[in-house]
Design a protein around this nucleic acid. Structure first.
Lengths: 172, 172
DNA sequence: TTAAACTTTCATTATTTTTTGAAAGTTTAA
DNA sequence: TTAAACTTTCAAAAAATAATGAAAGTTTAA
């Protein structure tokens, strides 16, 4: 097995771009994910200028995406005393980050879906095969989505080592 | 709390379009997710014509997306005896569906990410704050991704009621 | 007040992703 | 063989999404 040794800048860029393309799959765009990545590994809060500079993105883009990250509850505004400029930091505790993301995804995606699955599975049974199948499958999905949602809310309510503990439970 | 009563066609369309827009968030496009939804609630296997007709999408689009669904292991080709045409069905067991999706997402997304996080967290410690922070955060993410991956593979290896059982364990 | 320092908005532009459909490819029955 | 019945491919078009940047908005210090 080979081991890849990078220097700081290579590693940083690799991390930011990986996180960026990964973003699309937890439902946020590239710039937003890259800003998040940058803040996550920055020991100091960064200003909008800093972020624009580092990631080579426009002011408007930076502003809108920072706003969204704040909406997600994973980036925070910070003020340095004696400075007008706003600075930004990321939630640094990855467990807390995971909990926050789980919470938001439940609220934004899972819960609306559960509502619809419930409505769809409550159509009138008319005895036809197609209606039976629609009801059966949407009921099954509804149940599964419900279970998932309860599990995700469980995560949110737990202490920081929840995931590790859950793993131990599952493995044994 | 209000209850929404739809007729079959309304419910079917609602389900297909909901599943379609949901698709983007487990990493597949709208047409692919809609084809999957259609097959999931269809009591009979459907031909490419059937799917094109129902969803109003082109032949090429249908062909390519069916191929991908087959790659994901959640749609199967079926041949009717005496017929040249190919028919398609979906995996109907939603638990099996979830397991298959978990398995593919682990393989396609999680494992490559884990590899990169590992590489990035192995840069040489040079004593600077920024290097320290990069190593610390990517190590933490690596650990979390690893845990997630093990959990997902655990799901894949389990019997069909795994999710329910896991839930019971976690709640108590 | 005013004006400098900063942030947000949003119409326009650029990029990326998806879809189309016709041509090429494949399979099978005769 | 051949030709009909079907599937796949892929260049081009369309649609969806993201990014830009200048103007509008806001805040603060003097």
């Amino acid at each position: 097995m080979y081991i890849c040794i990078m220097n700081y800048d290579e590693a940083k860029n690799k991390f930011i771009s990986t996180w960026g393309s990964l973003g699309t799959l937890w439902g946020i765009n590239k710039a937003m994910a890259q800003i998040h990545a940058l803040l996550l590994i920055s020991p100091e809060p960064l200003s909008m200028e800093d972020i624009m500079e580092e990631l080579q993105i426009s002011r408007g883009n930076t502003s809108m995406n920072l706003r969204q990250l704040i909406d997600w509850g994973i980036v925070f505004k910070e003020n340095k005393m004696g400075e007008r400029k706003e600075y930004f930091t990321s939630e640094k505790d990855v467990q807390e980050l995971a909990r926050q993301i789980a919470k938001e995804r439940s609220r934004r995606e899972l819960q609306p879906t559960i509502k619809i699955l419930n409505d769809v599975s409550n159509i009138k049974e008319d005895g036809t095969a197609k209606t039976k199948e629609l009801i059966k499958q949407t009921k099954a999905l509804h149940e599964m989505a419900d279970t998932l949602d309860i599990m995700m809310n469980k995560v949110v309510g737990q202490d920081h080592n929840w995931i590790t503990k859950a793993l131990v439970k599952l493995i044994k």
